[in-house]
Nucleic acid binder design. Structure first.
Lengths: 156, 156
DNA sequence: ATTGAAATATGTTCGTA
DNA sequence: TACGAACATATTTCAAT
């Protein structure tokens, strides 16, 4: 949970350990050790180093939103008429659980958000009743993701 | 790893279990059981049910890309001049490790990608030498994320 | 669906090299 | 760094309810 300032050198073994755990966070470190030909204690020690370096942020179970009925992903570019309202707008966006990402961006929009909703109707409802209702939002541009082909973390 | 067709009813205890593991994939199920007031075996059995239902896709270690020197995130809208080339373009985008997401989208663009690079220079280099080089790419629009304020999964 | 107990496997620490 | 041994926990299965 703590991160040190020290710059860390990540060797090939560290990368292998991380590759395993980025794929399956519950893979036993003893098993990883066996595959790499080092002891479990060594893997454990390296993980502690990687954690304290801040490289490892945490671990997550990944759930399939479609099973919950969420099958429509969309990106929405938001124009804010007053830049000073940005933090307040973000605060309100955070209250909408369907908003998964929110970025201040260069370009035409003030903010770009990614959101996940059940269907197009749900999307329209969110736009009309939640997002457009936020003070300072003057206009939005919606891009529906018809199909997500790639979804991954940065490689090692 | 297998998913059944059966629709599953997720009760409050299932949600609590998932909430714990979505926050920390390595949290011991015995500990979760203790917090919820049920046995570890019960948690274990519910997890098997949730896995076979397809709700749980997997688990991941999350790493902090900034520690690796990746601090510039950008979204790029891509215009393809021939829709039939789309699958080939996606195939080539997949070869670029900096491309984290790729969506077919409604609207002006054919494709929207999210990518993570070291800095603006790296971004420019990717655009000029990798992305613009893909056959069928006629034009791109780049939006740099100045600051990501929200990053989460859908809630339960 | 849930439990406790038993068997197996893993996590963690520590002394040593 | 890495190791192995020792100890503490966790996972997994199972019979019973």
């Amino acid at each position: 949970m703590k991160s040190n300032q020290e710059r860390i050198t990540i060797d090939g073994i560290d990368k292998e350990i991380l590759r395993h755990l980025m794929e399956d966070a519950r893979k036993p470190i003893l098993e990883i050790g066996r595959k790499l030909g080092i002891s479990g204690a060594a893997v454990h020690q390296r993980l502690r180093k990687l954690e304290s370096s801040g490289l490892i942020t945490g671990s997550k179970f990944v759930i399939n939103p479609k099973v919950l009925g969420y099958s429509t992903m969309a990106f929405i570019g938001i124009y804010l008429d007053k830049a000073m309202r940005n933090p307040e707008a973000v605060k309100q966006l955070r209250e909408i659980p369907e908003v998964l990402e929110c970025h201040y961006t260069t370009g035409n929009w003030s903010i770009l958000i990614k959101l996940l909703c059940r269907d197009n109707e749900h999307l329209m409802q969110l736009l009309n009743t939640q997002i457009q209702a936020i003070e300072g939002v003057s206009r939005t541009e919606t891009f529906i993701s018809l199909n997500q082909q790639i979804d991954r973390q940065i490689g090692l």
